[in-house]
Amino acid sequence: MSDTTAGSLPSDISARSDIHDPYRIGRSAGGRGEGHGRDATGRGEGGPASRFVTVTYGFWIFLLSDIIMFSAFFAAYAVLSGSTDGGPTGRSLFELDRVAIQTGLLLTSSFTCGLGSITLHRRNMAWTLIWLLVTGVLGAGFLLLELQEFSGMITQGAGPTRSAFLSSFFALVGCHGLHVTMGLLWLGTMMAQLWVKGFRADLIRRLHCFNLFWHALDIVWIAIFSLVYLLGASV
């Protein structure tokens, strides 16, 4: 269909109309999208999505794999939670006051991380750095309480070698703690890079991936505080 006749033909919707069919397959109909194939005419052609979308989607897939790994630790804990070998049980070990504070810290840090995401979206450097700093401080507080709990348990003879229950407990909760530690290192790096290099496209992608990571850690913590601590202390 040549351009000279397009104006008179109602079938040439994609080129002439503002109507955007979000359910169409592929990215190219009408030559939209950021990919290399703006001139592509068929469905399913037209190149990849924008870099921001593909990078973040890839990280989303990683997060889901990470959560599947956590599910294996959860399964091990669920199976072994009764195997205390005559040693201490969750009911005698878990201190729910500390867990409540930890939950509050991590939830609030997830919230401030989201506020940082809004200010990042608005390209406000000062507030982005402030919210990231608050997020990091809250995350560090969470980690300190967890280390305090772990060292307290180990000194009263309830270390990971005591029973299968405690092995799986330390593996699951420690794995989450390791993730938070890595997140804090990542957060510090991102703050420094953002401070020095400004809102560069690659840094925005990385920081967005960090935000996803931090929210995902809080989602894993929901499962831990509900099904490990609260359930373990009430059964």
Partner: peptide, 25 residues
């Protein structure tokens, strides 16, 4: 111009990145 009408500040409106603020702001 038809291309740019469907993009917003260089954002890609066909797909949303997970967690993107633009989606439901």
């Amino acid at each position: 111009s038809d291309i740019h009408r469907h993009q917003h500040n260089g954002a890609d409106l066909d797909d949303a990145a997970p967690g993107e603020e633009r989606v439901n702001e």
